[in-house]
Amino acid sequence: MAAIPNEDIVKAIGDKFADAVTVIGEPYGLLTVESGREQIIDLLTFLKTDPSFKFTFLTDITGIHYPEQEKQIGVIYHLHSLTTNTRIRIKVFLADGDVHIPTATVLWEGANWMERETYDFFGVIFDGHPDLRRILNVDDMTAFPMRKEFPLEDPNRVDKKDFYFGR
């Protein structure tokens, strides 16, 4: 089947969710929409089960941090419709201090570790996740390392003198 035109998806989403889901743009042909966390599971379910779209494949879940925004933490979903070869990107932004979002593990088993990774890096709490623990970093870590304020290098290093590096 041929790829679904982005306008059709935008129209269908508009009919179903009205203003709750807004279109951000389509960079390089990939439709990008923004949703609130209240609608996200409904939206994902709709895209997954709608017979003309069938976005049945969860490509990826990841996060992003914009410190200067009011809603700092973003969660980004990439879905893929394997039957029509169409992709869609969905963004949800969350305010720091209230980083709760419902889990997508109810729709895809594979969301489990992707959400754990997002939690590990950005501290996003996926409500209803069966096993929300750190996955890559050590368990007793308290910070969320992919947030922009976290330094790349280990701040506790003593062997690395600045003057060796011209700083």
Binding site: T56, L58, T59, L82, E109, G110, M114
Partner: peptide
């Protein structure tokens, strides 16, 4: 089905 659900 399982493989797709796990995003394999």
């Amino acid at each position: 089905e399982t493989a797709l659900s796990y995003s394999w």
